[in-house]
Design a protein around this nucleic acid. Structure first.
Length: 496
RNA sequence: GGUCCUGUGGCCGAGUGGCUAGGCAGAGCUCUGCAAAAGCUCGUACACCAGUUCGAAUCUGGUCGGGACCUCCA
């Protein structure tokens, strides 16, 4: 099966056909850097990291654009709250750009810990003020926006007369209007759903730019439209983000692009589902967000212990990106053990060579081959990482059994063994981006020292001096190093 | 109120109209000086009520429960 992706726009899985194969343009809404990203935010970026990796693995040349929102984001009700950066800067008595810098840096650090690849381009809103002004001007010229005292609003009801505004989330304008309050006397916009493209700045506002309509700053939604157009063109392949962005942000993006360029920006809209805590969405405003470093240190009232970045990444892969994922200690602990098992299997197969040359195909061969082939089929079916993982665990069982001579190695042909090896390692490392966090090979000195102790223990065992051999094993275990007596008489170790 | 999603064994979580993932935890066995690790075996789940069907956890309708979005949020 070729790659199929669920498109929010059509609410079905569609065959993925790039506009300009082998090139793929993908835009993902990045973080607003006025505070630390929480784990829910990370889930989206990790999901798209895997999508990005898989597209590349499948042979596509991907341009992955993920923005940094560092201006224009207002608090509270539509277009009336305080600028988030300005507020934070005021509270901490620093420049808004210091806030931006601090949280951009910390975001990058978190992405690095989660082993997310850098996007091809990471544009900032403040770096594209001109493009946003130009786009706003064009929308005014086309008659879909109007100015009120230096602020420019998008005219949703006028737009809806020509194109369906609520197309992305399947909503009628009347229904949307029902959900909004009446405009009050002090409201300056004409329609209840109208949103700002450009906002007039008060004199004391710290971040403001010159525009045809006076000093001001851009609205939130226009940045993504302007930047996706600049780097991916007016139409590109995939636009992604969290599900919470679909109803407002992405809906407005589509309207802006249609009004400006007469085309919808993306062919495929992908939305990742929310991370929940006790069944409720993790969100900044609810204050139930876990920060990555709280997780890595275990420093959080709801956590019993620390969990590593790779454990969390693995944890997220066990669920499909379009399902909600509930966050709990128990689930995390299960993930930690499962992840370690998978990594153990990978270490083994990486270093294992099949002794015998065998070319005839056995039943076992067919079984292994199917498990391998299905991994690709499952990824092609809207990135079903959970099912792929199930297959990888099946392969892991085979790998352990081979190593422990619990499976007849002569039943496996050389080509199938090689296939299993590449499939296993490609999926774990290249596509899923998982890496062994306590690999033995990473520390040669430690290994040398341990070999010394291992030899002492071997001697003790040979002399049936089990008191000494157990002492060595137990004391190392206390230091977090586990010794294992293998079947062939060797002793291996790993950090636990 | 509107637009949707969802309800799976002790826990987390996939899923196709019939062949009933996977992980964690639990029980037994094998291996081992003892462990550990690993292998094998076991538990037979799909909210409830009707309907369609030879056959439904999977389709349809209803009931009850949970959640998201419609206001800033990945």
């Amino acid at each position: 099966m070729s790659l199929h992706i669920y498109n929010t726009l059509s609410r079905t899985k569609e065959k993925f056909e790039p506009l300009h194969a082998p090139h793929v343009g993908m835009y993902v809404c990045g973080p607003t850097v006025y505070s630390d990203v929480h784990l829910g935010n990370c889930r989206t970026f990790i999901s798209f990291d895997i999508i990005y990796r898989y597209l590349k693995f499948s042979g596509y040349k991907v341009r992955y654009v993920r923005n940094i929102t560092d201006a224009g984001h207002l608090e509270g009700d539509r277009d009336e709250g305080e600028d988030k950066f300005a507020k934070k800067a005021r509270l901490e008595q620093v420049e808004p750009m210091e806030i931006v810098q601090r949280y951009t840096t910390s975001f990058h650090e978190v992405m690095r810990l989660f082993n997310c690849e850098n996007p091809s381009i990471e544009p900032t809103a403040t770096g594209h003020i001109l493009e946003q002004i130009e786009m706003t001007q064009t929308i005014i010229n086309k008659g879909f926006a109007y100015e009120v005292d230096g602020t420019i609003y998008f005219d949703v009801e006028k737009y809806n007369q020509q194109k369906p505004y609520g197309i992305l989330t399947n909503r009628k304008l009347e229904d949307l209007l029902e959900g909004t309050r009446e405009l009050g006397g002090q409201d300056e916009k004409h329609g209840r759903l109208d949103f700002a493209l450009w906002i007039k700045a008060k004199p004391e506002h710290l971040m403001q730019w010159q525009s045809p309509w006076g000093m001001g700053f851009p609205g939130w939604h226009i940045e993504c439209s302007a930047m996706s157009k600049k780097y991916l063109g007016s139409q590109f392949d995939i636009h992604g983000g969290g599900m919470d962005l679909a109803a407002t942000h992405h809906t407005n993006e589509i309207a802006q692009n249609e009004a400006c360029y007469n085309t919808s920006p993306a062919k495929v809209w992908m939305h990742t589902n929310m991370l929940t805590v006790n069944g409720t969405r993790m969100s900044k405003s609810l204050g139930n967000g876990f920060l990555p470093h709280e997780l890595f240190t275990g420093n959080h009232p709801l956590l019993e212990k620390a969990y590593s970045p790779m454990t969390v990444r693995f944890f997220m892969l066990q669920t499909h990106y379009r399902s909600t994922l509930d966050f709990s200690n128990e689930a995390l602990q299960a993930a930690e053990k499962g992840f370690q098992r998978l990594m153990n299997a990978m270490e083994i197969i990486k270093n294992y060579e099949l002794g015998i040359k065998n070319s005839s195909k056995s039943e076992l061969d067919f079984e292994i081959e199917k498990l391998c082939d299905d991994c690709y089929e499952l990824m092609n079916d809207d990135f079903n990482t959970a099912m792929v993982l199930a297959n990888l665990f099946e392969l892991a069982s085979k790998i352990f059994a081979i190593k422990n001579n619990q499976l007849d190695v002569s039943q496996i042909s050389s080509t199938i063994f090689a296939k299993m090896k590449t499939t296993f390692v490609d999926f774990i490392e290249t596509i899923f981006g998982l890496q062994n966090e306590n690999s033995n090979s990473s520390n040669d000195k430690l290994d040398e020292v341990l070999q010394l102790l291992i030899n002492l223990r071997k001697e003790a065992k040979a002399k049936k001096d089990f008191a000494t051999s157990d002492l060595i094993r137990n004391q190392l275990a206390e230091k977090g190093i586990q010794l294992k007596d293998e079947k062939d008489g060797t002793i291996s170790w790993n950090v636990i």
